[in-house]
Amino acid sequence: MRVGIPRALLFHHYGECWLEFLETLGIEPVITEDTSGETITVGATRADNETCLPVKVFSGHLLQLKDRVDAVLVPRVVRQEPGKCACPKFMGLPDLARSLDPELPPILSPRMDLGDRRSLWAREWYGVARALGGRRTSSAVAVARLLRALSPLEEPPPARPRHSDVVIGVAGHLYNVFDGRVSLDMLERIRRLGAEPVTLDQVPLEHARRHADTLSRKIFWGFESRLAGTVLHWSRTASVSGILFVTSFACGPGSIVGALLEDQLEREGSVPLMTVTLDEHSAEAGLVTRLEAFTDMLRHRSRTTADVTKGSDPFVTSAVHPGGSG
C-alpha cells in the first residue's frame, strides 16, 4: 500500500503529523518532489484558471502522484484555530482534487478541525486508518500520535539570535514562502543581500493573537489573523527593519488582508512595507530588482535615522512607505 501526499499547501504546516500518522500504520508515504517549473506548468494548465497559484501548484503535485500510488491523502482542514475558519479552498480541496482528473487514485479526506473537539474529527482519521488496513490498536495509536504531533506546533518556538543589521519580516503563507520555486528562492535571496529574513513561524502565537485583537474588526480566517497579528507585532515593536508582504495572484484572503494591513500600518506610521504578488509567470529578475531596492532603502534608512535622531525612536519619523504593490 502506497499513500501519496502532495508537497503543497498545508503539507508545509501539518506534513510532519500526517507522515507520523502514515508511518505508525506502517504505510510507506510517497511525498512528491520539490516544486519544479514543470509542476507549476502542469498545475496551471490542468487546474481551473481562476484558482490561486498555491492551488495550481497543489494540482501539479497531485497529478504527479497519478500512477504512482494507491491512494492520496488530502485532509480537509476546516479550521486552524478555534473560533476562526480556514480559507474556503482548504475546505473544498478534496472535492476540487476529485474533480481534477477522473483517473486519480482514491482521495482520502479525513477532516481536521483544530477548532473543534478532537474526539469528533479524530474519528474520521481512525476510519481512514482502518480503511488503509490498520488493525484497531495500531489505528488508534496512529491517531493518538497524529494528535500528539500536532501539539508542539501550537507551542511558541524559541527566539533566534539576529545576525544582520537589516532584518526583513517575510509575511506570507508558509506554502508560498517555504516553496523555493514558488517564492523564487526569496528567503535565500534576502540572505544573499546581507539581510536576515524572519518568517511568521518564528513569532510566538500569543504575540500575533494579542496584536490581531486590536484590529477594529476581527479577521475570521485563522492563518490570516495570525499573519496580520504578526505584521502588527513586527511593526509596533520595530523588531524588523522592513516587512515584505508576500501574496499570490487571486489569493482571496490575501487581497483583503493586504489592503487592511497597508491601511492600518500607514495610519500607525510603521516600518516600510512592500507587497510582492507571486504568480506562475513571476520572473526572477523582477523579484531580485525589487528585493535589492528594498534592502538598499532599509539600509539607507536605518543609517540616516540613526544619524539624525540618536536615541529617540527612529520609527516615529518614518516617512518612507512604498506601500501598494509598487
Binding site: 481551473d48 474556503p88 473544498g92 472535492d95 481534477l100 477522473p102
Partner: peptide, 19 residues
C-alpha cells in the same frame, strides 16, 4: 465574480457534475 473563492471551488466541482 472573477476570483470569488467559494464559486471557484464550485466551478471546479461543476465540471464533474456536468460530465
Amino acid at each position: 465574480p472573477f476570483t470569488c473563492m467559494p464559486e471557484v471551488i464550485a466551478k471546479g466541482v461543476l465540471s464533474r457534475v456536468s460530465s
